[in-house]
Design a protein around this nucleic acid. Structure first.
Lengths: 179, 179
DNA sequence: TTTTAATCTAATTAT
DNA sequence: ATAATTAGATTAAT
């Protein structure tokens, strides 16, 4: 409900994959849904091999593609990207500081308060945790790198004993953070 | 909306993690949300080490747990398990036969038609694909096993050439299905 | 006990 | 940069 006005036009008012049509089908296609494991990457690869420079990645409306394969219209499209407002992000960030694994009740509260679906909240927290993990990993990496550099300096000074102590302690801390 | 009457009582009518309370906080807790990567497994392990045989797994209401750690109430609870009706599952299965990666439009159509949230549809298809993959893996395993047994029989008969041909062809098929 | 809805991570896709 | 999707592993309710 938050500025996601569904720009997916889908070529007018005739949906290619309406449930009515699907449920009307006689279900005589046992070998239809056996293309598991992200089949659109395969389609994209085929199109690239065909010399067509227009990549599937940049078309999320496959029914608009002039493809020779009728099987490529199995994918209708993804949800339009939600554009959170500054206020929404601000509230979400504040809550994240306190609880980065909100349960269903808090998610529902947030959804009601921010006029978003509960699922958007869920996804936001998943992506936010991933971002935090990424930044923690980078910080840790930089710490190790600077420590190694420091190690090098001290080693050059001939401060052998301190070097060894620092190294073992560093290893310890890195291991702790692993699990 | 489908027979999910929210059995999570959360100790009455006083939510422990209301947004009001969170937003009222002074945000002076920088080291609060640094327990990433499924912290509840850690909590469970701690409880086991403490000799308490009651595992966290069987309590999905942590606020009811008599834990010595106040940080164990990070988890408010998960969404109550949705009980799909026979008709809902029937329609979902039918659609799955035709398109096991429904896009946003088809998911919304299904949600409206079946009186479910769109994200319940999304989750259902994710779990359904996982189930299909699992069964395909098992089928493949059984095929390989029976083929190996067959190989053994033919080898015992001394039919060396046919054995080798069958083996190479089998390897080919297994490789094809991998990617 | 089995099945499967819900949650999570990690990687990826795509806006 | 980050919202959305996926596979895969796991947790937990039925």
């Amino acid at each position: 409900m938050a500025s996601t006005l569904a720009p997916v036009t889908e070529g007018g008012d005739r949906p290619a994959f309406s449930i009515e049509r699907i449920l009307g089908l006689e279900l005589e296609r046992p070998g239809n849904c056996l293309k598991l494991h992200r089949p659109w990457t395969e389609i994209a690869a085929e199109k690239e091999n065909a010399g067509n420079s227009v990549c599937f990645k940049h078309h999320h409306h496959p029914q608009q593609m002039k493809s020779s394969r009728p099987t490529s219209n199995w994918y209708i499209g993804r949800r339009p990207r939600t554009a959170f407002t500054n206020r929404q992000v601000s509230v979400l960030e504040t809550v994240f500081q306190v609880n980065c694994y909100p349960g269903i009740q808090l998610r529902e509260q947030l959804a009601g308060r921010l006029d978003l679906d509960e699922d958007r909240i869920q996804i936001w927290f998943q992506n936010r945790r991933a971002k935090l993990r990424r930044s923690l990993r980078e910080t840790r990496l930089q710490l190790v790198q600077s420590a190694v550099a420091d190690l090098g300096v001290r080693h050059a000074r001939g401060d052998q004993e301190l070097t060894q102590r620092l190294a073992s302690r560093l290893q310890l801390e890195v291991d702790e953070e692993e699990e």
